[in-house]
Amino acid sequence: MRIFDPHIHMTSRTTGDYEAMYAAGVRAVVEPSFWLGQPRTSPASFFDYFDSLLGWEPFRAAQYGITHHCTLALNPKEANDPRCTPVLDELPRYLAKDPVVAVGEIGYDSMTPAEDTALATQLQLAADHGLPALVHTPHRDKLTGLRRTLDVVRESALPCERVLLDHLNETTVAEARNSGAWLGFSVYPDTKMDEARMVALLKQHGTERILVNSAADWGKSDPLKTRKVGDAMLEAGFSDDDVDEVLWRNPVAFYALSGRLDLHLTQPEPLHEGNSILRGGE
């Protein structure tokens, strides 16, 4: 089973996670830029974070045979903090970079006017840079948030077909599918979706344009949820090809819209033995 996790926050994860993910079949990940679990206080914190997503994290991933791309953005939560919004001025420089395969995560958190502005601005940036967009749907008041998101997307220069709506569930999937967007589902231990519900949803709505991710981060989450969904699909009678479509071909097709997805793994400089991460604690 080859797996592409289209949404996972590897900066919060350990090398043990990378090893386990590789063993489970994960060969590619996309790491969206998001909140850190605590507030940032300046654009400089974003730049350091972008550095990780563009340099260190791909290096770590490559040690374990996994290709790493990222999406960059000002996240919805911090779009409300005037200390952070100047990062929008620097985004054009970053969105030109080779490992950036979408603008994201953008979208709504509390549905404020500041979030409206950040979402519209960044959808335009995506259109300007030839990038698709990863749009997170809010955790609170989700259906209303989805509808407001779709309104802003439809008013933007970015076609719905270049948008991945994420964190969807049973209450939002139908409207999201009707929009023509790609559909992302985050599978979590306690919140968001779980494996059984995901399989039921796939039975009802099919596999087309559907992506499954672990969205694993610093909270209670599981970077192997993609594999667990694949196993649950097979147990429920889906074919290997169905699993491959959901866990590999769909995320590849979506992020390939950027023209920048490169699944060829560049190994770091030849190493004598082990690597700097394995040996870093010596």
Partner: peptide
Amino acid sequence: RTNDTRLLA
């Protein structure tokens, strides 16, 4: 200062 062998080299 990094541990990225590409940069060190």
